[in-house]
Amino acid sequence: MTRDSSPAPILEVRALTRRFGGVVALDGLDLAVRPGTVTALIGPNGAGKSTAFQCVSGVIPPDGGQVLFQGRDITGWRPDRITGAGLVRSFQIARGIPRLTVLENLLLYGPAQPGEGVISAILRPAAMRAREEALRERAKAVAARLNLTRVLDNQAAALSGGQKKLMEIGRALMAEPKLLLLDEPVAGVNPSLSAEIATHIGSLRDEGMTVLIVEHHMDFVASLCDPVIVMAEGRFLVQGSFAHVAADARVQEAYMGRRVHA
């Protein structure tokens, strides 16, 4: 798999930098995600994967560099604008809104609801009710797809760990993403649910969505993701199929540490 034969990337990150005090989390990161792929972003702890997600999704601003989504420069945009453009992320530790129900958590991510204006909220015009009904139908479809139908009316706080992970994906789907950023979707999830989540993500790709995943479970990455991008010390290291990057000496070195030459 070569990078040359690919169509224009849906996401391109150029020379992205971000420091936290004296710690350089991102040190000129370059990467590109091709449309229609499930791409993995892996690397040892502290490589800067989560920071890259934070900067790309607008939750924290980068110090320098560029983020291009569908060819448009979205560097430094607010998260709500980035979501509106079609780039939606999930959170690593499932951050359901605990006191809202699963249905409300899903509805929250629904775009273009006129009832989010004060006047419409009070007067409840037909447009608002119709939109709410459409969003409910979609929320139910998303829930059915992710096996969350039974818990739709439960508070998010009452979900199991695995269900929270599924809801995290479901919420992002409600925002109609073109590119879905999943931050450790199977961390702490049992193997059978992990396989189920892999199936869900695979079918999203088959429907034309692009997915970028940060994950530490290598079985999951190997079975689902192609290509795999490896980063280390805040930079791009290597990209290719899982077998290709796993065999790369630099990757082994990044994960295992350098051999000390006496």
């Binding site: 939750v59 998260p79 709500d80 979501t83 992320r89 006191r99 929250l108 775009p111």
Partner: peptide
């Protein structure tokens, strides 16, 4: 409950 989530939800 969580400002970051609300922002990522597109609000």
């Amino acid at each position: 409950e969580d400002e970051d989530v609300a922002a990522v939800a597109g609000k």
